[in-house]
Every structure is written in C-alpha cells, then in structure tokens.
Computed example of a mutant assay.
Amino acid sequence: MIGYFDVRNGCAGDMIAGSLASCVDIGEIKKQLKLIDFPTKYDIEIKQIIKHTGKFHGIKANQFIVKLEEKENDRKYREIVSIFKNSKLNEPAKEKILKVFETLAKAESKVHNECLDKLHFHAVGQTDALVEVAFSILALEQLGINEVFASPVGVSNIAPATMEMISGIPAVFRDIPFEITTPTGIAIIVSLVKSYGDSPPVITTGYGYGTGTIQTEFPNTVLFAYGEPSYQKYEKVGIIETSVDDTNPVIFEYLIETLYQAGALEVCFFNAMTKKSRPLFCIRVLCKPEQKEILSKIIFQQTTTLGIRYREEERLILERKIEKVKTKYGEISIKIGYLSGKPVNIMPEYGDCKKIAAEKNVPVKKIINEALRRAIEEMDENRL
C-alpha cells in the first residue's frame, strides 16, 4: 500500500495526524495509544471544519486537537526515548516513532550546538506533540502503508531546526509572515518519505485533509491519500541515444556485448534513413542513471558518433521471481512476473533452453514449449 502527503502548503504534527484521521479506525488507535505511558493525561478531539479562504471554495478538513490536563515543563530528548522504548507498542511502531524524534533531535542538536544527552525539547517535547507523532505512525501502520511519498514541502518564516531538516529535500520557500511548516511536521515527513514529487501510479482507496488553527488566504491543509500501486515496482531509468551513418555495422555485436557487460539494462538498434538518403542506425541504451557516464564513454569509444542524447524516464515493472522446473529434457529456469501478487507472465529462460537444445539436438522451440507447459502445470498445482 502506498501513501502520499501533499505538503505544498506546509505541514505540522496536528495537520498530518488530522489528514490521517479520516482514513482510520480512530477508536482502535486510541486503544493502542493507551499502551504508551505519556507523562501527562490528555484527551484527543477531532473537529471537522470547513476551511474558507479568500480565493478557494471551502475544504472539509480535520483539526486534530490534543487537550492536556496540566501545563508541562521542557522535556529531555532521552526522556522521550524512554517513554516510547518502555511502551507496549510493537517494535516496528516503536522504531518509526523513535526515528521521528531522532531526526528532530539531531537537527536541534546541530543548530543549538548541544549534545543529545543534554538536549531539551520545548514545544516539540510536550505530550501533545508526542501524541501527534504516535497517532500518525499508528495510523499508517493500521492502513498497511509500506511506502510513503510526498510533494515538495512548503516553508516560510523557518525555524532553524526546520531549515536543517529540509536540507537536501525539495522545498518551496514562500513569502508568508508566519511558520507554515513546524519542526514536528517536517520530522515526520523526512523520517517516512521515500521520495518527493510524483508518486508511483496508485489506485486511490481513501484520503483525508488535516488543518491547523490559523486562518489564512490559502488552504493551509495537508492532504493524505493512499491506495494500491497499479504496478508492482516503479523506478527511474536513463535513456542514452545516438545515431550513426558511417560506423561499420560489423562492430555492433561487440558494442552490444560490451554495453551489457558494463551494466546496460537493454540495448536496441533501429534502422532509419537520413540526409542524402543515407542508411542510419539509431542506438538506444536503457540504464540505471548512475551508469550514464561509463556507458556513454563506451559508445564514444566504439562508434563514430560525435554526440549523445540523454534523458531520464520512469519505468513500471512487475515483481519478478525465478523458479526451476524439471522437464523430460532437464531442469530449466522459469521467469515469472507478478501483478498485485498474481502471476501474469511466465517465460522459460532462453539461455537454459538454448544450452539443452544444443546438448540434446532438439529444436529450441520444443524445449521452450515443454518448459512452459511444465511451469503452467506446477502453478496450477500450487507448486510454483
């Protein structure tokens, strides 16, 4: 399950928790929160309001309010660690909550030049902030979210710790005279998010808006949406392309071998016609972005091209698994592609089939067909 936070208009702990509140069984999460010995008694109130602004229609959003029974003093970072370590939550939830506060503590420690053992939290160490973080993590766990993505983060009137935490991630700096992203909010985002910008294609299951208490001229809301990925895997790949009309084609076999040995994911050649009716070869190489330099160098060295085009694209791929089946010709590897956990593609490994065909003096197509037949039989019998 994939989760996505739209935080272009900023984020705070209460806004994130509020956005999640529309998607979960709140009563169940409140039961889990009782497994944590918070230092001060509290009560959670979730108010659904319509956020009106000067330029937009109203947005229905949740205000996540933690009411404390008494005023609190500052709290040491190590005290917060103890609160969650000594709780009865499951270990994965503990680890994620502690990661949020570790992210926050390291930022505060750096900007204030104070070691972690002596570090005191002010507002971010109060029970309401602890509840907001714990609620958010438990909500994501209840939804079964295993990957989190987010938009670039909107920031303004930035606290030093917030500035430290947004270093290295996409941010939009806005000319607004108050803070739209708080240290607690950005600590949650930075600790959970896999990447920023577009999410992988997702079939949306649910969504919710969370908001703060400040009335603004823009919708100071966080949107959280979640759902199943429409493909099993999503990744960025590099595309290297060039065209040659004066390279001897006999070298192409060696070029292909060299590119694959260097890590190319795919190498393709296309025929075309260029100026003066010259035959042209278009070379396209699919690669991991970090392989761009070494693969481009090979093309420059092995061909007559004077220039190479490069771009990055998104690739959607199925989850893959290699199994082995026993046939009357021998054991053959089978590649299986899964979509949403169900097999949709089955193909024998050509290398295995080619080797056996040569050894047995049998047409390779017969080996492929036999391996495919056996694979389907074993899948029908739930043995693959």
Rank of each mutant, 00 (worst) to 15 (best):
I80N: 02
T211K: 01
K355S: 14
H52F: 11
G330F: 07
Y207P: 08
S199F: 08
N271W: 08
E266Q: 10
V133T: 01
E323L: 11
N9L: 11
C353Q: 12
S195R: 11
K288A: 13
P348L: 09
I2D: 08
N113F: 00
I97C: 03
E91C: 00
M15V: 04
N157H: 13
I299T: 03
L192H: 03
I368N: 05
Q261I: 01
E235S: 15
P249M: 13
I294F: 01
M163N: 12
I83M: 06
K233R: 15
N369H: 03
A171Q: 09
Q48C: 06
I368M: 15
N9K: 11
G337H: 07
Q32T: 02
V100R: 02
V202H: 07
K297N: 14
R383Q: 09
I46S: 10
R78E: 13
K236F: 10
L265E: 12
D380I: 13
K233M: 15
G3L: 07
K288G: 06
R284Q: 15
K276R: 10
F135L: 00
D25T: 11
D246H: 09
K118G: 12
T53F: 00
I36H: 01
F121D: 00
V190T: 04
D25V: 11
K194Y: 04
T213H: 10
E359W: 06
F270R: 13
G351N: 15
Y196H: 05
Y4R: 12
M15E: 00
L119F: 00
